[in-house]
Computed example of a mutant assay.
Amino acid sequence: MARRNSLLALFLGTLACAAAYASAFLPGDPPGWSPWALGIGTATVMVAASALGAARADTGIGRLKLPFALVFLIVAGGFAAVLMMPAPDAANPQLFLGLPAGAAIVLLGIGILPLLVLPIAYALTFEDMTLSEADLARVREAARAWQAAQQPASAHPIVTAKPEPAEVVA
């Protein structure tokens, strides 16, 4: 279920980004919804791809729901904040850590903050979300069965030692 929902979100986010880019080809200025669709679509694609990678058949995304929701809110909220900001004033710029406010939100909030949240969330849920010993044993057994099925019934065993050269009798 988690994989299907992640794939659906990935598709819808990609569709929103594509619609935003396609709107640039319309005559006149881009419509007002275009940057919003791009921001929300980008946040959706980012979180859906992460959830798709973390989804397991038996547990879904488990305790990672909250960190993924937080990352979506950070990214989408950052885009919304930048889109709602007034145009920067060249005479009196508002700087944050030496950057214009909009650039600081994009670089620090949208770019770096999710890089701090997700690795910590993955580290805290590592034991729950990784393969168990039973899962590893099942994967190893499936690999052995697959390798055995790949060998024809009349196949000769693989020779690993070099044969000795035959002596030539003159």
Results as ranks from 00 to 15, higher is better:
12 L>R: 02
13 G>Q: 01
14 T>K: 04
14 T>F: 13
14 T>W: 10
15 L>G: 05
15 L>D: 02
16 A>K: 00
17 C>F: 06
17 C>Y: 06
17 C>T: 13
19 A>I: 10
20 A>F: 02
22 A>G: 13
24 A>C: 03
26 L>C: 04
26 L>T: 07
27 P>I: 08
28 G>M: 07
28 G>F: 02
28 G>P: 07
31 P>N: 03
31 P>T: 09
32 G>E: 13
32 G>P: 00
33 W>Q: 06
33 W>F: 12
35 P>L: 05
36 W>S: 07
36 W>G: 02
36 W>F: 10
37 A>C: 15
37 A>G: 12
37 A>Q: 04
38 L>M: 14
38 L>Y: 14
39 G>K: 05
40 I>V: 15
41 G>V: 07
42 T>C: 05
43 A>F: 11
43 A>E: 08
44 T>D: 09
45 V>S: 02
45 V>A: 06
46 M>D: 01
46 M>V: 11
47 V>D: 03
48 A>S: 13
50 S>E: 03
51 A>W: 01
51 A>T: 03
51 A>N: 03
52 L>W: 08
53 G>I: 12
54 A>L: 14
54 A>P: 04
55 A>R: 01
55 A>G: 05
55 A>D: 05
56 R>Q: 12
56 R>S: 10
56 R>W: 10
57 A>C: 07
57 A>F: 14
57 A>S: 15
59 T>P: 00
59 T>F: 12
60 G>E: 11
60 G>T: 09
61 I>H: 01
62 G>V: 07
62 G>P: 00
63 R>V: 00
64 L>V: 04
64 L>W: 01
65 K>M: 09
66 L>I: 14
66 L>D: 01
66 L>S: 07
67 P>I: 09
67 P>M: 08
67 P>E: 07
68 F>V: 06
69 A>P: 04
70 L>Q: 04
70 L>M: 09
70 L>H: 00
70 L>R: 01
71 V>G: 00
71 V>L: 02
72 F>N: 00
72 F>H: 10
72 F>Y: 12
72 F>V: 05
73 L>Q: 06
73 L>E: 06
73 L>S: 10
75 V>H: 06
77 G>H: 05
78 G>H: 03
78 G>S: 08
79 F>V: 04
80 A>F: 03
80 A>S: 11
82 V>I: 13
83 L>M: 14
84 M>W: 02
84 M>P: 00
84 M>H: 06
85 M>I: 06
85 M>K: 04
86 P>Y: 03
87 A>C: 02
87 A>H: 11
87 A>N: 09
87 A>R: 12
88 P>V: 05
88 P>N: 05
88 P>G: 04
88 P>C: 05
89 D>K: 13
90 A>Y: 02
90 A>G: 00
90 A>M: 06
91 A>N: 12
91 A>V: 07
91 A>G: 10
94 Q>S: 15
94 Q>V: 15
95 L>P: 05
95 L>C: 09
96 F>V: 15
97 L>K: 11
97 L>W: 15
98 G>Y: 10
100 P>W: 06
102 G>Q: 14
102 G>N: 12
102 G>T: 08
105 I>R: 02
105 I>E: 02
105 I>Q: 03
106 V>I: 15
108 L>R: 03
108 L>D: 04
108 L>W: 10
110 I>D: 01
112 I>G: 08
112 I>Q: 12
113 L>A: 14
113 L>T: 13
114 P>E: 04
117 V>A: 08
